[in-house]
Structures are given as structure tokens and as C-alpha cells.
Design a protein around this nucleic acid. Structure first.
Length: 588
RNA sequence: GUGCCUGUAGCUCAGUUGGAUAGAGCAACGCCCUUCUAAGGCGUGGGUCGGGGGUUCGAAUCCCUCCAGACACGCCA
């Protein structure tokens, strides 16, 4: 279905054409002076130059030509040459009824759906998730859901960090502690135990210890590097251990991501890309893309237009070993081969901007990606504490994601119990749902690319521009609808009628924007635009709610009109919130 | 040093891609519950949009310059 702005623009275009002006000036936008009008067109001022005529005259010509249309309730030309308009009540209500009948609520679906891979999450095996992983997960999940809502095929890939020295470190430390394990017996030929010789708790304790030792003890580090090498060569005992590490770790990661309501379609990992490396390196050499420089194998990625020196993309270190770049390039090769994506979006820390510029250019230059496959870097800023410095625990350490979630849930639980008399078990469940909205909304309502301040008190507040406020509004609507049903009403029947109050019309206008907002938000990969929209919608609803008594309305036709509008408002809010990655409870 | 990003109310942030009187929330101060969740609504005060130039009918938005902060700059990931 057409967007409401397009429909209005079409009307204005008719006016411009009829008055003898080019229709390209007829672009209509939302009013930035709601006190004066609902929609405005600034085209007359732009046209003034081309036609060498006063803008106001042009505006008046257009208005005269618009005479007799049934979309505009009022239209007037104002000072320099603004065309201010209000649309008819019937036009808005017709639009809302059509919107309600549309399964996508007016969100335009992609005419040619794309396959878009989303690289987000990026946790490391055997290390707990910490707050640094939060943004990637939250933003990535939202973009994924937004993409699906506009009809694209979105493939989310967690892209596990499971390769390199960290594995060797764990194996080495394990060997120090339990040398008697069969995994370390070279002549062992039997089956390895199905049960892992460690728990996730032990694993998480082992890694930092091993990492610390390797920094101080050269011999230890050498052992770890050797173990890494052995693993990569396929040492059966090490491979068996690696499998255990993976299983234990991935189960734990899945549990944690589930708490965040984040899910991945693919649990691919860096090691999966390794088989592609030899052939890729060979290809880069043979075709002259890569050359040796100071002993390392590199690909030049400088471009004429660069304002600064872009270092070459390193493929192999001078000792011949591969590195992060190599794996990422090989991952691109793998993704192209397996999924042929139209676009790959990386949701990663913005500090990796330069690095990804190198990787993308290298992939492009060496034709590792199709020409029409887009590589997108979606860099996000740092999550800071109230002091403006990177978020830390009170003790100054790195905050585990799990602990952060627990803290928020506890905070939320207190608030819910303090304010309402609810059953124990309900309160715990509700506080988890609302707590998640607090975290996600707090994050997503900021522009992803900027640093932001993570303020627990502010995010968990029910007042202002917060997740809990949005949910509270949604719950209020549900509450009315439930009452209506209990009294024997049917919320599925009825037609939305023209507005009878200013607050109702404002709510209707806000609802009518939904489709355009979602499409635009996805185009710009900007979840914060959805936040801004639903906050405004929630405000519009609360204003309307405050002055309209629905359940006691005598006129049944009017009542069912309002009920239908509540259903639409609820649906818009729930769909929006779904795209942000959380949901509304039934009560709170 | 080079490059990139950021700078908007006391605090946290928007600003529809160049439009009208720069907007929200929090904090402060008033009002509004016998009526669908007051975790709500209405209102008041608060700004040289980092500074200075320029572009034009018109600039928070585009260009130049300076100031301040954050980040990145070949064998880490």
C-alpha cells in the first residue's frame, strides 16, 4: 500500500502541474510547525529561482489549482512561500482502515528481496560475554528483525572467535593441571570420553590464568603456541578437547543470548574459514594482488582519493602464519560460496573502521566478492558509565553480561513490587521482560555510531523516553481491550471513523506514519528512529487516552471505532518493539 | 604527527537530509485521580546550537579556519 506522504504528494503534484509548474517541486513533508498545519510543502521557494517568480505567488497558483480535491481539508500559503495543509478526517481514517487490513500494517515490502548476512555477536569461545558484547548483539538483532519486517532474507551469523592462541592456552593449562587425561596420551587409540573434563565455570577460570601465565613465562607461551600448532595440525587428543571446549562454551553462550532474546541462524566460527585460506592465498599471489613486503604477504589497498595513508592489508605474517585479516577474508570467500549474499553487514565496534576498510578494499580489489555484493561496516560506539568513561563494575573490572542482566532484573523487580501488588512469580517474569526492554531501548534509542552513557537508573525508569514507558503504554491498551472483551465486546469488528478531537486526530496522524518510519529506519539501519517514533506515538496515545473514555461510550459505532484504533495502536507498538528485540507483557 | 568521529538547555539525547519561533526526557516548580493502570496527563522556567569567518532569500545542518574531547594508525583480535 502507498504511504500516506506519497498519496498527499501526488495530490500536490497535480496542483503544481495544473498551475504550470514542474511536479518535482511538489514534495510534501511532515509539518515542523504542528501548531500551523499537519503537512507542508516547501517547493514553491525552490521553484522561485527556476521560474523567476515570487515564491508566494507560486504557492498561491498551486493552491488555486488544488481547488476541489478531497484530500485536503485546508491549504494556505504563508509568508516566504510555505504551503501549509491539513488533511481531511476521512482521508486519515480511510488510510488507517486500509493499514489495519494490510498484514504488514503499511510497511512496504522489498520488491526484490535481498539475501543479507549479518555478522554480529562476535563472542569468543571459553570467555564469558561481557558488556562489550552487548551492543553488537542488541543492534545486530534489531537490524536483523527490521530487515525481515521489510521482506529481506536476513541471515544472522554469530561468527565465533574460536581460533588461534586462546585454544592453545586452554589446552596447555589443562595439561598442566591434569596431565593424566587421555587426551594428552600420545599413543592413545581408543574412543575419547563423551563427557567434557571441565565445566563452563572451570573453563572461564582457566583461560585468564593461562593468559596471565603466558605473558610472564616465555616457556609457557611457547608451549601454548606449540599446542595451538598441534591443534591446527589435527592432533586427535587436542581435537577431542577442542570439541569439548566448543560444546560446553557454545551451550553457555546460547543460554546467555537467549536471555537477551538474541538468536543466530548460523553458529559459524573462525575455524570454519580456515580451509579456504591456502587456496585464497594462492589465488592472491598468482593473480598478482598480493606481494611481499618486509617479509610479510600484503595487498595494497591505497586509493587515489585517500586523504591519508591506508596501510596495506596483511595476508600472512612474516613467519608465514595467518591472522585476523586472513580469517575475515576467507570468511568472505566462504560466505560468497555458501550463501551468495547481496550484502554483508558487520556490526562491530567502530574502532575497527580502518581495519575493515582494508579488508573490504582487499576483498573488492581481489574480486573475492561479486561486484554487486555490498560490504557494509556498521560501527557502534562505546558503552560508557555515568562518568563518561568505558563502563566498568564498581570494582573497576569488566562487567559480565550475566551480572548486568541480573542487576537490572533486580532493580526492575524492586520497582514492580513497590508500585503494584502482584504475585511473586508474575513479578519475576515481568521484571525480566521489562528489564530487557530497559537495556535494549536504552541502547537502541541512541544513534548506534555514537558513544553513549549507560545509566541504569534512567533506563529502568517508567518515566520519559524509556523502554518501560513504552511497555506501560502498551499494557494500558491491552488492559482496556481485555475489559472490553470481558464485557462481551468483539475487538475484531468495526471501522475507524473520522477523528472527533484534536488528540484523536494527532494519534491517527502518528499511526499513519508507521510504514514510512519503518522503511526509512531500515534503509538507514537506524533503530533509534523506531524508538523516537514509538515514543511519540505513545505520547499521542496517552494524551488521547487521558481525555477519552472508551468503555463507557454510549455510541456503539464510535466505541468500536476507538476499539479498532486501540487494536491498531497496540499492533503498531508491538510490531515496533518486536523489531527492537523485546516484547510487552500482558500486565505490569 | 596524520586521519576519522564528536561538541545542541544543569544532565542524557533528538533534530524529518538547507526552511518558519531549535525540540524531547530527566532534574526544579506549579496544577489534574468517586470515572478504562496517576508507572499517567496539563503547564512554567531554562539555549551566543564549541568560537570565528563564508556560501544564499534562509544554516544546528553545506564550505573554510581555530578550540576542546574520544578513537584509529603493518606483522594483536
Amino acid at each position: 500500500m502507498d504511504r500516506i506522504l506519497e498519496k498527499i504528494t501526488e495530490e500536490i503534484e497535480k496542483g503544481f502541474t495544473k498551475a504550470g509548474y514542474d511536479a518535482k517541486y511538489a514534495k510534501v513533508t511532515l509539518s515542523n510547525r504542528p501548531d500551523l498545519c499537519e503537512y507542508q510543502c516547501n517547493g514553491a521557494m525552490a521553484a522561485a529561482k527556476a521560474y523567476k517568480k515570487a515564491p508566494l505567488m507560486i504557492a498561491n497558483d498551486v493552491i488555486a489549482a488544488l481547488e476541489g480535491n478531497d484530500v485536503l481539508e485546508s491549504v494556505e500559503a504563508v509568508n516566504p512561500g510555505f504551503i501549509n495543509m491539513k488533511i481531511t478526517k476521512a482521508f486519515v481514517s480511510d488510510y488507517l482502515n486500509a493499514m489495519q487490513a494490510d498484514e504488514f500494517l503499511g510497511v512496504e515490502q522489498a520488491e526484490a528481496p535481498k539475501t543479507i548476512m549479518l555478522d554480529y555477536g562476535g563472542p569468543n569461545v571459553a570467555k564469558p560475554l561481557h558488556v562489550g558484547h552487548l551492543r553488537s548483539a542488541v543492534i545486530g538483532e534489531s537490524i536483523k528483525r527490521m530487515g525481515r519486517a521489510v521482506g529481506h532474507k536476513m541471515i544472522g551469523d554469530v561468527h565465533l572467535g574460536d581460533w588461534g592462541l586462546q585454544m592453545g592456552l586452554i589446552i596447555t593449562e589443562l595439561k598442566e593441571r591434569k596431565p593424566e587425561l587421555v587426551y594428552f596420551q600420545e599413543d592413545y587409540t581408543g574412543e575419547y570420553p563423551a563427557e567434557a573434563p571441565f565445566t563452563i565455570g572451570e573453563l572461564e577460570e582457566i583461560y585468564p590464568v593461562a593468559s596471565g601465565k603466558s605473558k610472564e613465562d616465555e616457556a609457557y607461551k611457547a608451549k601454548a603456541m606449540e599446542a595451538t600448532h598441534q591443534l591446527q595440525q589435527g592432533n586427535p587428543g587436542y581435537m577431542a578437547l577442542w570439541n569439548h571446549i566448543m560444546t560446553v562454551s557454545v551451550n553457555d553462550l546460547k543460554r546467555n543470548y537467549a536471555r537477551l532474546d538474541v538468536s543466530f541462524d548460523l553458529w559459524k566460527k573462525e575455524s570454519d574459514a580456515q580451509p579456504y585460506i591456502p587456496e585464497m592465498v594462492d589465488y592472491l599471489k598468482k593473480n598478482g594482488y598480493a606481494h611481499e613486503d618486509q617479509g610479510a604477504l600484503v595487498v595494497d589497498v591505497k586509493e587515489e582519493t585517500d586523504t591519508k595513508e591506508i596501510p596495506p592489508c596483511m595476508i600472512l605474517k612474516s613467519d608465514g602464519a595467518s591472522l585476523y585479516n586472513t580469517t575475515d577474508l576467507a570468511t568472505i570467500v566462504e560466505r560468497m560460496k555458501l550463501f551468495h549474499p547481496d550484502e554483508i553487514i558487520y556490526v562491530v565496534d567502530k574502532r575497527q573502521d580502518l581495519y575493515f576498510t582494508q579488508v573490504f578494499r582487499c576483498a573488492r580489489k581481489a574480486r573475492l566478492v561479486d561486484e554487486d555484493t555490498t560490504l557494509t561496516f556498521l560501527g557502534f560506539g562505546t558503552m560508557n558509565g555515568k562518568d563518561g568513561k568505558p563502563f566498568k563494575t564498581r570494582e573497576g573490572g569488566v562487567m559480565r553480561l550475566e551480572n548486568l542482566l541480573n542487576e537490572i532484573n533486580e532493580e526492575m523487580y524492586k520497582k514492580i513490587v513497590d508500585n503494584r501488588s502482584v504475585k511473586e512469580e508474575d513479578a519475576h517474569k515481568t521484571s525480566e521482560i521489562v528489564g530487557l526492554s530497559a537495556i535494549k531501548y536504552g541502547d537502541l534509542s541512541n544513534q548506534a555510531s555514537k558513544d553513549y552513557v549507560f545509566d541504569v537508573d534512567r533506563f529502568t525508569s517508567f518515566e520519559g523516553d524509556t523502554g518501560p514507558y513504552i511497555l506501560y503504554t502498551t499494557v494500558r491498551i491491552k488492559s482496556i481491550l481485555n475489559r472490553f472483551k470481558e464485557e462481551g465486546g468483539d475487538i475484531e469488528v468495526g471501522t475507524i471513523l473520522g477523528a472527533v478531537s484534536d488528540s484523536e486526530k494527532a494519534l491517527m496522524l502518528s499511526l499513519s506514519q508507521y510504514g514510512a518510519v519503518i522503511n526509512n529506519a531500515f534503509d538507514e539501519k537506524a533503530p533509534h528512529k523506531i524508538c523516537a517514533y514509538i515514543y511519540e506515538l505513545a505520547n499521542a496515545f496517552n494524551r488521547f487516552y487521558h481525555e477519552t473514555k472508551i468503555l463507557s461510550e454510549e455510541n456503539k459505532e464510535q466505541q468500536s471505532s476507538w476499539i479498532r484504533m486501540l487494536v491498531l495502536t497496540r499492533d503498531v507498538l508491538e510490531h515496533s518493539v518486536q523489531m527492537l528485540g523485546f516484547s510487552a507483557p500482558e500486565k505490569m
